[in-house]
């Protein structure tokens, strides 16, 4: 178990303000989230990933996963236990509605020769290992599809930790173990390279 970031506790117990300014349309229940994810959900390095623009369903589902231990993070578990029902829906809708920096979209087929193995994996997968292309579910340039989360512009550290957590069974709750299966086939170098690739997309 990782210790909760100090800043979170300071924020939770009111020692420091969670953020200097709150967005006027932010639901009260989201204020505590802003301490680590930012007022507009853009994420704060080392504290919390970007949650802006994720689908509301996905956000609510992740909170539930923290509640029941399918995702493990001490601070998120503690905070997730405090919220449900309408406030959760409001929080999820609020962050889902926040805009994210757009990235240049690369659709499948627009590029065939890849020099970056991570990009090749993202666009072609590695089918002899039964690894589909990341973009077939996460969308062109990893911009997210339906309730499947956006990867583009997400923190590299966060992406890497998630892939490792899927791989090692610390993160669950994916339908039919789809991500556990995929992450389980990736080696450390690939995980690092893919995380950096999606994080750095512009």
């Amino acid at each position: 178990m990782k210790p909760a970031p100090v800043a979170l506790y300071l924020c939770l117990f009111g020692t420091v303000p969670c953020s200097n300014s709150f967005s006027s349309d932010m639901p009260p229940a989201a204020e505590v989230c802003a301490g680590c994810h930012g007022v507009y959900g853009q994420g704060l390095e080392k504290l919390g990933p970007r949650i802006a623009g994720l689908s509301a369903t996905y956000i609510s589902e992740q909170v539930r996963h923290f509640q029941v231990g399918e995702r493990r993070n001490v601070s998120m578990h503690t905070l997730a236990m405090e919220i449900e029902g309408e406030p959760l829906a409001q929080v999820a809708n609020y962050f889902a509605a926040q805009s994210v920096r757009p990235v240049t979209i690369l659709r499948r087929g627009e590029k065939i020769l890849f020099t970056d193995p991570a990009e090749r994996l993202a666009y072609q997968g590695d089918w002899p290992r039964l690894l589909p292309a990341c973009v077939s579910c996460h969308g062109p340039s990893g911009t997210g599809v339906g309730d499947i989360p956006r990867l583009a512009g997400q923190q590299a550290d966060y992406l890497r930790n998630q892939l490792r957590d899927w791989q090692q069974g610390r993160r669950k709750g994916d339908r039919d173990g789809v991500m556990a299966n995929i992450a389980g086939k990736l080696n450390d170098d690939e995980i690092r390279a893919l995380s950096r690739y999606f994080a750095e997309l512009e």
Partner: peptide, 22 residues
Amino acid sequence: EHCLLCHGADGQGFASAGVHTL
């Protein structure tokens, strides 16, 4: 149980950037 997440409750899949990858 097994298909809905990607193909949607209404079976209409999902698009991103104009492509129905799902």
